[in-house]
Amino acid sequence: MTLKVLAAGDHFVRNSLLIDALKSAVPGELDVRELTLPWPVEPFGRVGEVDEASDVEDELIEALRGVEVCVTQMAPLTKRVLDASPELRLFCVSRGGPVNANLEAASEAGVKVTFAPGRNAVATAEHTLAMLLAATRRIPQTHAELAAGVWRGDYYTYDRVGPELEGNTVGLVGYGAIGSRVARMLEGFGATVLVHDPYVDVPGNVGLPELLERSLFVSLHARATPETTGMIGKAEIAAMPAGSVLVNCARGALLDYDALCDALDSGHLFGAACDVFPDEPIPPGSRLLTTPNLVMTPHLAGASKETAMKAAAIVAADVARYVRGEPVAHLANPS
């Protein structure tokens, strides 16, 4: 029997990657139709009752007619889409969390939702180290001034130079797939690594107050949950040593960005680097655009060719399990 599949890729996890992975992994005949979503050329946002999705409900409903399996990254699985797609049984989201899927409505409709944990762990860990070094060594600022024809010798003065990783302590808030990789990389730099993560049992796992007090560098790697939202605010930043560096390549909700800007303006923090923000894109007039010693990238820490290929392979493997009648590996709605 032929399996009808919709590949709803975008300009990062391309349909060609999804289709090649499906053909390689899934037994039997496939009838694959395609829908190309506009992300990341057009930002994601809230669609209906789901977050971080491309606003393509109407196009998705039309493309899903008669389809049993959908593989995607940014398609919005809303109640409206589910109600219009009675044949749909498996919705595979090729990202670390299926925030673009209404899991409760999917469960009620009998649709399994899967996701792709760990797909961008290597890319995000590498980007975190790059951001940490860029903020500490003033790489973006000095490059911009050199490109403008300005040679700033005063960056070599004692008060303007930053600390080394070797021999200093780096605190990692979160020790999952990304945080643990960052820890291994930091050990190669000769840094001492502390961890704050109540869900793991590893050496150097301490309370958040102790981590902040002892760490000259702090990097955030926790998931955004009600418990972690706003976990790094004015008091927590003040508890960090003067002249320290803070990095957030996890989620914007973890950090109070006004407190971050205050600490950079005052000089309490030597520098900071962020890949994620409370509002994306950053709105015009935001303090983030003018605060000194802040390195920023537009939510692309997980962006690598390998991430896109891994994402496609992970969802294709779950489609193969579904076809063989096996339990899927990364089910988001077991209820």
Rank of each mutant, 00 (worst) to 15 (best):
M74Y: 12
M296W: 12
F44N: 15
L133H: 06
H196K: 09
T128G: 11
Q73L: 14
R95C: 13
A116P: 03
V319P: 00
A320K: 02
A303K: 14
I232L: 04
L129G: 06
A53H: 00
G28A: 13
M296G: 07
R223D: 13
M1G: 15
A134G: 07
L82H: 04
T229S: 15
H143S: 09
R80M: 07
A130Y: 03
D197A: 01
G233K: 12
H196W: 00
A303W: 13
N205F: 12
G45F: 03
D275K: 08
V71F: 09
P284G: 07
R152K: 15
R287M: 10
R324Y: 07
V69D: 00
A259I: 02
A25I: 08
S335P: 11
G204A: 13
V150S: 15
P117N: 07
T36R: 14
G204M: 02
C92L: 07
V32D: 02
G174W: 06
T136K: 01
F91P: 00
V247R: 10
I61E: 02
G48F: 06
A8Q: 06
P327G: 08
I314M: 00
V56Y: 12
L35M: 01
F12M: 13
S304T: 12
L88K: 05
A238Y: 02
A259H: 04
L255M: 06
K4M: 02
D83M: 11
V161A: 11
M1Q: 12
A123P: 06
G149L: 11
G188H: 11
P283I: 10
K23W: 05
R65N: 15
M74E: 04
Y322N: 01
V69Q: 01
A235K: 15
M309R: 14
A273D: 08
L246P: 10
W151E: 11
Y155I: 13
A116I: 12
R119A: 10
C249H: 06
V247L: 11
T307I: 05
L294S: 11
E227G: 11
R95S: 04
L254M: 04
V328I: 01
E87K: 13
C249P: 09
T136R: 11
A263P: 01
A272H: 05
H268R: 11
L146W: 12
V99R: 13
S16T: 14
P241L: 02
K112V: 02
P86I: 13
V67Y: 05
I61R: 05
L208W: 10
G243E: 03
R80K: 14
A250K: 00
T169Y: 08
E42H: 12
G204T: 07
A317Q: 05
V69I: 10
V99F: 14
A121K: 08
L288K: 01
I282A: 13
L288R: 07
N120F: 08
L216D: 05
A312D: 04
P76S: 01
P38I: 00
G188M: 06
S107G: 14
N15F: 05
G153N: 12
L211F: 10
G230F: 08
R160W: 15
D201L: 12
